[in-house]
Design a protein around this nucleic acid. Structure first.
Lengths: 119, 119
DNA sequence: TTCTCATATGAATACATGTTCAATTGAGTA
DNA sequence: TACTCAATTGAACATGTATTCATATGAGAA
């Protein structure tokens, strides 16, 4: 009886727990959702995304705008690419990055809104 | 000339960079926004929030629903409290937690929506 | 008071992650 | 070919953070 490391069934509201459990989304799915939020949870990446929401920019421009090293920016762009939040096109030696779609803008705007409201 | 650790001004699109720089939001503000996203960027916290969006629950119920230790849940609830995403009321020995406001629900829903669309 | 039990907390551990540094790639040019 | 330079990449380092374990708190019951 009772599961390890968890409070014993005896004093849990078993019916409520089961009901909520049945309503919960898949663990794997919620993990994915949180993983998506995580991308926006770093100020460097958020700045990059916000800058790109104004105009497509090359890596070097982004480095200048954020006052950070090209390498640091490039590493973060890699993350953003892997999450399909940004795309890029090559032009000569340069790589111009831009936001993948409108969802990204919507997400940023919601975050900005909610943060403003709490001031 | 040129800033340390940043690509030299010579090959940067100086005009573009300055324009974007002027349009950027305050560093401090964007840091705060990313910090807010970060709270949703952990699956345990997201699960807690999602569970609470169904019904207010005590710590022990949450532990049972998530199949995690009471201590782990309590630590995360502390984070959620500090970010004003959840509130709680005491009833005897128990502490019933519930979502602080509708913004939390809206945020979760947006995250869920965006994640679904990418499948 | 003493005991039980739901919750909270502090320290320690383990793991994840952002940045730097150095080296590499690859496109353009001489 | 050799050279330049924007961008990428890998390894190392430092920092952050989630969970566990042990303990403390504090309310209710005996």
């Amino acid at each position: 009886m009772g599961e390890k490391d968890i409070c014993e069934i005896v004093y849990v509201h078993e019916d409520v727990v089961n009901k909520i459990k049945s309503k919960m989304l898949e663990d794997e799915f919620l993990f994915e959702v949180s993983d998506n939020f995580k991308v926006f949870g770093d100020s460097t990446r958020l700045k990059i995304l916000y800058a790109l929401s104004q105009k497509e920019l090359c890596v070097c421009d982004l480095a200048a705008v954020l006052s950070m090293s090209q390498s640091a920016i490039s590493h973060q762009l890699r993350v953003l690419r892997s999450k399909n939040l940004v795309k890029f096109r090559r032009e000569g030696k340069m790589a111009y990055y831009y936001l993948a779609d409108e969802h990204v803008v919507a997400m940023i705007e919601l975050g900005v809104e909610h943060t403003k409201e709490k001031l």
